[in-house]
Design a protein around this nucleic acid. Structure first.
Lengths: 164, 164
DNA sequence: TATTGTTATACTCTATAACTATA
DNA sequence: TATAGTTATAGAGTATAACAATA
């Protein structure tokens, strides 16, 4: 993720016209990379990865999710979800409880410690995000949010929460 | 990159409140992922990856770049740049010419075939990008572009083009 | 002594396939 | 027969370190 080359002390300012910067898609890509690096760095201070935060946030929604649900919601491979939940379970942030209606599935439950970790992570991530959006005023942030949401309409959440 | 789980035909619509969707940073992350997948798919039809397109576009700027310049500009590890340029040189899209003023460096030159490939790639990527932004009118697209640019002010291009 | 580009290597991440249990 | 979760394994992608050529 972090690109060591970006951190060079002897980095030179741009001196060329450059059409990638005029491409909205590339700006979106770069902005996402930069913010993600910021968020990863902020969360690393409390021992979490961004995807751990996403998983904890998803589980805080009140609807018990299975690993498949998480996979579909967050776009993570099911085998990746296993590793993430293994880790979060080891920290006692998440519990795997068998779904009594379908014993193949788990109901993944956020523990009290998990809720607390989520609060910490949310604070750290929000701080990074607020700094990233610092050039925009509140109205502009709302507008950016709304426009991003519209580009994604019908594409996310792609699919989640199996019917009971 | 592509998440097989997202493509499942039996995917269910969302039924839970979900706070990640209210986080601008996550929307930005997801939007970037979705668009990048679209662009990768569009470029695959002409045998290119997104980063190949980025490199070709960078080299079209008129200023001869070295591999280090590319690394800094695009945030790619220098060893990754070697592999990408090896590949593009093999297709005869790019030439490595020694920089006479500093024989450690290359001047990377776009060939005519490379320019043609770039035109094709630009067409394909623009088509994907236009479709992705289809929910926004022209003014909104310009606004989105400007706001993304402002969040990135001073952070990209981080550094590029060594002094002669 | 530092930098550009390269190679070899290691490491991380994700995907694939096979398996168990449950439906 | 299909699905949820798991494991083992393989593959891609990237980073680290060492090296050659040049400054």
């Amino acid at each position: 993720m972090a690109q060591a080359a970006d951190d060079r002390a002897d980095a030179q300012p741009l001196r060329s016209d450059f059409s990638l910067g005029e491409r909205t898609g590339y700006l979106l890509h770069k902005a996402s990379m930069v913010l993600e690096a910021d968020v990863e760095q902020a969360l690393a201070e409390i021992g979490l990865r961004a995807r751990d935060f996403f998983v904890l946030a998803a589980l805080a929604g009140g609807v018990p999710l299975s690993q498949q649900d998480l996979s579909r919601l967050l776009g993570l491979d099911p085998t990746t979800v296993v590793a993430v939940i293994d880790d979060l379970e080891g920290r006692e942030y998440v519990e795997r409880r068998r779904n009594p209606a379908d014993r193949r599935r788990y109901n993944l439950i956020l523990t009290d410690a998990g809720s607390e970790a989520l609060r910490e992570a949310d604070r750290a991530a929000t701080e990074a995000e607020t700094a990233f959006l610092g050039q925009l005023d509140d109205d502009e942030r709302a507008l950016l949010h709304a426009m991003l949401g519209r580009t994604m309409s019908g594409r996310w959440p792609a699919a989640v929460v199996s019917p009971d």
